[in-house]
Design a protein around this nucleic acid. Structure first.
Lengths: 218, 218
DNA sequence: GCGTAAGGCTACCCGCCAGTAGGTACGCGG
DNA sequence: CCGCGTACCTACTGGCGGGTAGCCTTACGC
């Protein structure tokens, strides 16, 4: 029974700043995704992170700063995941297909990242809402460009251009909602989800009813 | 300069309970839609309603009760608005068309109702999130039934049935997102919005690119 | 072994806000 | 004009939670 044995089981000690920041951000994303910005308390975050509250303030700043850091990290992750999966020289439908697959794979793997980005960020208001809206807007513009380019390539032009942004908005929103739905159905693979979206937006109900099916052309 | 002149300009006085409850609910929806549940303060709500705080507590109960009352009233309004517009004996695409139009008309007219239902209710967590999720689920089931019935009527069956709920989820989500987008573009009419959705989900990009257009068959 | 800087903590402050106690004005029936 | 109830208010409390002051402790250079 030396005095060594008295020590409380094992306290993680003296880690470098970068590691602590990671731990804190991980905990913050988890707590924010569970309770939302306002209902989340710094005490709970520090508790989950295994760190005392002042550490958070010295490393990441105020609650708002912390939330911003979370949003930016997760948004970057998401965009990188999607860009990694897309290949710009393929035809439009195949680009969309790969983008969707990467997206659903990301959501399945990082549920909490997705929740905090999609559901919580909008409710804070002000700067963050704008930031998220911007990110969404970029995604929408991207998809709109895809649709319009596909249209003009075939010589349709104006009709597609005018409604392009609206269509893209509803497409992006539909993809997001399906992602939310899939959170409650974890047995559905990302490939299946992506192919549902492709069938819906590329073929439409009318063709689906007739028995048509969209398939990736490899 | 009689003492009558001293009276503060005009205080609304001694109104019956039902009227006050309406005023309070109206104010609550407005404030909740602006700030979200947690950031909204009872003081601000009472201020907007032109009523003191204890009135709210005696009439509508706690903050959570108040929020619940808002949600239920607005949800009822929304569902009634949609049901008023739909005619069950029309073909599936026309049913969808009328449902969408009513929906977008409602959102344009009662922006705050829509905001509080769609964006804020989910962030409170617990009972309300469940309530909203239920309402959404009912909408999704409804649309899914529409799709499946349209499919089986043509003899497709299983394929459509299996993916029906997922498709409906993404359709409903897409419609909601387009509603959000339309909040920033108030010059677009509900008819145009609904026809975009019809073109997207009934025809699909592939047909749109080819120049096809969906039109209501009256 | 000794200064010193960086990692880390406990314990507190204080403002904001949900919720309430207790009082005042007004109408109405006698 | 006197109770009596109902509409309505001002003014408070209690606690929760963001943010901080100040202290301890380990590692490392010399």
């Amino acid at each position: 029974m030396s005095e060594e044995d008295q020590r409380p089981p094992e306290r993680a000690r003296r880690l470098p700043r970068a590691v602590r920041e990671r731990q804190i951000l991980d905990a913050a994303v988890q707590v924010f995704s569970r309770h939302g910005y306002h209902a989340a308390s710094m005490d709970e975050i520090s508790d989950v992170a295994g760190v005392s509250k002042p550490m958070i303030y010295t490393y990441l700043g105020s609650k708002e700063d912390l939330f911003g850091a979370c949003i930016r990290r997760e948004a970057t992750r998401l965009l990188e995941a999607i860009q990694a999966g897309v290949q710009p020289d393929l035809p439009p439908d195949m680009q969309l297909w790969h983008g969707l697959r990467s997206f659903y794979r990301f959501v399945a793997e990082y549920r909490e990242s997705w929740t905090v980005l999609h559901r919580q960020a909008l409710t804070v208001g002000g700067a963050f809402a704008a930031e998220i809206t911007d990110m969404r807007a970029r995604a929408i513009q991207l998809v709109a460009a895809l649709v319009v380019s596909a249209g003009t390539r075939k010589g349709v032009g104006e009709q597609a251009e005018f409604s392009g942004e609206g269509l893209a908005a509803s497409l992006v929103g539909g993809a997001e909602s399906l992602a939310d739905w899939a959170l409650d159905h974890p047995d559905i693979s990302d490939g299946v989800l992506a192919s549902w979206m492709m069938n819906l937006v590329w073929l439409g109900f009318n063709d689906l009813i007739e028995g048509a099916v969209w398939k990736p052309s490899e």
